[in-house]
């Protein structure tokens, strides 16, 4: 941290630790879906050589194992959020990371949503949208109480600003 280089600090709050399990479960579903074509191929290709099947299967296993072991931990270290009186600030991703900042005065909607996997881990996500189609700020893996609190806070603050936020 040299004096003349200005940089952003990460947002203040981490998401819930249970989010790691949520990401693991979500990725596991994806990898399971990818298993389906392999199974179909195995039975459709009844009397062919088994070696290509095994090679693809081994590749699938290694990739899935590494992804499931690394991604959730990494994401948990990256995903952070913060909401101040004037702005919302999020940090997401793992290999590729992204920070998004939107001023409260430009916020149009605040959404909270709980998908099936999220309900399983008692989590919720919050989406903050602006008038731009490119700028929704999504905070995944919040504990339900935190999410409700955040939505309530943001809604109050957004209500206090004027203008059509474009």
């Amino acid at each position: 941290m040299t004096v003349d280089v200005v940089r952003l600090r990460p947002p203040m709050h981490r998401v819930s630790p249970r989010a790691r399990w949520y990401w693991t479960a979500k990725a596991a579903v994806l990898w399971t879906v990818l298993l389906v074509p392999q199974v179909i191929w195995w039975f459709a290709d009844g009397d062919g050589a088994r070696l290509p099947h095994l090679i693809v299967g081994a590749g699938w296993l290694v990739l899935a194992a590494v992804h499931l072991a690394v991604m959730p931990q990494w994401r948990y270290r990256v995903h952070r959020w913060e909401a101040t009186d004037t702005a919302v600030y999020t940090q997401t991703g793992w290999l590729s990371q992204e920070r998004r900042i939107a001023p409260i005065s430009r916020v149009q909607t605040v959404d909270s949503e709980r998908g099936p996997i999220e309900q399983l881990f008692k989590l919720a996500n919050v989406t903050v949208t602006t008038a731009s189609a490119a700028g929704p700020l999504k905070i995944q893996g919040l504990a339900v109480a935190d999410a409700d609190q955040l939505v309530a806070d943001l809604t109050t603050r957004v209500g206090q600003t004027v203008g059509d936020a474009t």
Binding site: S96, Q97, E98, R99, A102, S132, G135, L137, A165
Partner: peptide, 13 residues
Amino acid sequence: VIGWNIATSVFQR
């Protein structure tokens, strides 16, 4: 400008 997205890929980092 109604918000900033600051994206950084592995190679960019």
